[in-house]
């Protein structure tokens, strides 16, 4: 409880300094919504019902539903992740991690809670709207358990995404050279936002077992479809989140013990 309230204060501090530049914040929020909507527009224009009626049998509504589903986890991840991208530069090479280690708190939580991408909440609202809009046109009915699953899988998906980037960030403890590995992995997230069967076997394998982004939106979203063949993986998302978190935490802890700080 006390720990939660400390991180609440971290968030407040960030909010105060972020709102010191409030026009910048509003501009970013609008930019975020525009970028989110343009991603949608791409799908709407691609699967136009005439030239491309569906993606290997997945209709426009189904694809949009999965895409909207991914936005919940992605919004959560994007909100928390800004410090993970610049972790190597800002914390390891510049030596700011010293300060983190000097406080009686968990180091990873401090890094995550020192900066947020608040404007990402824009895409959260777009995602929720999209789920219910396409859900309605697909004839879905949402019960209490469905809402619960949406919440649990959304948070688990956010944990999977965050864990993958925590693992990548923890490499900065070992290689002080700047590794340009974050951007390509980030692009892989987009593959996880489409129906998995449209990809070839190699990509499917990677999205399941290497960077498990298929568990972020596609598998949990199949709960809402009446398509057979996904029963096994559909509810594995929380388990995958636990595995990812464990691996990331181990890699992080090992990385901290190799931290060398800066020269002075």
């Amino acid at each position: 409880m006390r720990t939660l309230s400390i991180y609440g204060s971290y968030f407040n501090q960030f909010l105060m300094s972020r709102l010191a530049y409030k026009w910048d914040f509003f501009a970013s929020l609008i930019a975020n919504i525009v970028v989110t909507l343009s991603g949608l527009l791409f799908i709407v224009l691609l699967i136009d019902g005439e030239a491309v009626p569906s993606l290997q049998g997945w209709t426009r509504e189904e694809v949009l539903f999965i895409y909207g589903y991914s936005m919940i986890s992605l919004a959560l991840f994007n909100t928390l992740s800004p410090n993970l991208y610049r972790f190597g530069d800002k914390y390891v090479i510049e030596g700011q991690f010293d300060r983190v280690l000097l406080r009686p708190l968990n180091t990873l939580c401090q890094v995550l809670f020192e900066s947020f991408n608040l404007e990402s909440v824009g895409s959260l609202f777009v995602g929720i709207w999209l789920i219910f809009y396409t859900g309605a046109s697909l004839g879905m009915e949402f019960g209490a358990l469905d809402y619960l699953w949406l919440l649990v899988s959304g948070i688990s998906g956010g944990i999977i995404l965050t864990s993958v980037f925590v693992l990548l960030a923890s490499l900065s403890f070992h290689f002080q050279d700047r590794l340009g590995i974050g951007a390509p992995v980030y692009n892989l997230i987009n593959f996880g936002r489409y129906p998995l069967p449209i990809f070839n076997n190699v990509v499917q394998f990677v999205l399941k077992w290497v960077v498990p982004f298929a568990f972020v939106a596609f598998f949990p979203a199949t709960h809402f479809f009446s398509r057979p063949g996904f029963e096994f993986f559909c509810y594995f998302t929380p388990g995958m989140a636990a595995i990812c978190l464990l691996v990331a935490a181990l890699a992080w802890t090992y990385g901290v013990s190799k931290y060398t700080s800066t020269g002075s």
Partner: peptide, 28 residues
């Protein structure tokens, strides 16, 4: 307590007193 002359322990953009309050919360 640690003071490194080269870099500050305080939050850059917020008032000093707010930093102090947060630190005292962190340290109970």
């Amino acid at each position: 307590g640690v003071v490194f002359g080269q870099r500050t322990q305080l939050w850059w953009d917020i008032a000093v007193i707010e930093s102090f309050r947060l630190l005292s919360k962190i340290y109970d």
